[in-house]
C-alpha cells in the first residue's frame, strides 16, 4: 500500500491527499452498504415476508445451514458437487486442450466443432437432458455442470498452450530428447498460470451453475432447497442460499484464489 508520490508535489502531500481520497471512497462504499441494509430493515416489516423477508429472518435461515443436520447435509452435498464437477471438468478440459495441441489433426474437430457447441449450448438444456438421461442422481448433476465448465477450462488451457514460447521449447529440445521430460519441466510450469486462471473462473461459474443443475437434476443440495422453497414461498430460504453462494464465491476468490494467483504469477510469470 505504499503510494508513489506525484512528481512536482511534496511526497507527504501526495500521500496525505491519496489517503484522504481512499478514506472518502471507503466511506461512500461502506456507507452505501449500511444505508441499503438499513432500508431493508426499515421496509421489510411493511411488506409480506414472501416478497421481502427481513434481514434477521434471512440471517436466521443462513445460520440454519451450519446448525441443523438436514440443511448442513444439503450444503455439503453442493460442496461435493462443485468440487467433483471441477475435478471432472479440469481433466476433460485439459485432455481436450492437450489433444488439440499435440495431435494436430484433431485440432479443428475440438477447437472448431466441439468447443463452439459446448460453449453456445445452454446450461439449462444440459440440465434438463441430464435428468432425462441419468435420472435425479449425482451423475446428472456432474454431467450438466461438466458440460458448462469444460469450455471455460479448455479455452484457457488452449490459449495457454498456443502462447507457449517456441524458443523455450527449442531450448528444451536442445537439452533433452525426452518429450515427457520437456513436457514436465518446461510446458507444465508454463501452463500453471493458465490452468489456475481457468480454475479461478470456473470456481465462480461452478457455484452458480450448481444451483441450476441441482434444481432439475437432484433431490438434495442447495439447488433442491431453492426449488422446494420456491414452491413453498419461503423467500427467506432462497435469499439465505444466495447469500451462502455469494459468501463462498467471494471468500474463496479473495482468500484463496487471488493470493494464490498472485503468488503463482510471481513464481511462474514472466
Amino acid at each position: 500500500m505504499t503510494a508513489v508520490a506525484d512528481s512536482g508535489m511534496a511526497p507527504d502531500d501526495g500521500d496525505a491527499l491519496r489517503r484522504a481520497a481512499r478514506r472518502r471512497k471507503a466511506w461512500w462504499a461502506n456507507g452505501l452498504v449500511v444505508a441499503l441494509v438499513g432500508t431493508w430493515f426499515a421496509v421489510s416489516p411493511f411488506v409480506p415476508a414472501y416478497i421481502l423477508p427481513g434481514p434477521m429472518l434471512v440471517l436466521q435461515k443462513f445460520l440454519l445451514f451450519v446448525t441443523t443436520k438436514t440443511y448442513f447435509f444439503h450444503l455439503t452435498t453442493t460442496l461435493f458437487h462443485v468440487f467433483g464437477a471441477l475435478a471432472i471438468s479440469l481433466s476433460i478440459g485439459a485432455a481436450l486442450a492437450l489433444a488439440a495441441h499435440y495431435v494436430r489433426p484433431t485440432r479443428l474437430l475440438i477447437r472448431g466443432r466441439i468447443y463452439p457447441l459446448l460453449n453456445s449450448f445452454s446450461g439449462i438444456g444440459w440440465a434438463v437432458l441430464a435428468v432425462i438421461w441419468f435420472g435425479q442422481t449425482d451423475g446428472a448433476v456432474f454431467f450438466a455442470m461438466a458440460c458448462v465448465l469444460v469450455p471455460f477450462i479448455f479455452i484457457n488451457l488452449h490459449e495457454g498452450l498456443e502462447s507457449l514460447d517456441a524458443e523455450l521449447q527449442e531450448m528444451g529440445r536442445s537439452f533433452t530428447r525426452s518429450g515427457l521430460r520437456r513436457f514436465r519441466q518446461i510446458t507444465l510450469p508454463l501452463l500453471v498460470p493458465f490452468g489456475f486462471a481457468a480454475l479461478r473462473i470456473s470456481f465462480g461459474v461452478a457455484w452458480k451453475s450448481t444451483l441450476l443443475a441441482e434444481l432439475f437434476g437432484a433431490n438434495r443440495g442447495l439447488g433442491y432447497v431453492v426449488n422446494q422453497s420456491r414452491q413453498n414461498y419461503e423467500t427467506e430460504v432462497i435469499l439465505a442460499v444466495i447469500l451462502w453462494i455469494i459468501v463462498i464465491v467471494f471468500a474463496g476468490d479473495r482468500l484463496f484464489f487471488k493470493p494464490a494467483q498472485e503468488r503463482i504469477q510471481r513464481h511462474y510469470g514472466r
Binding site: 414472501y50 452458480k208 444451483l211 441450476l212 431453492v226 423467500t235 442460499v241 453462494i245
Partner: peptide, 13 residues
Amino acid sequence: SFPSIGWAILAVI
C-alpha cells in the same frame, strides 16, 4: 457472484 437462478426466482416473486 449472484447466481442467475436466484435472480430468475426473485424476479418472478
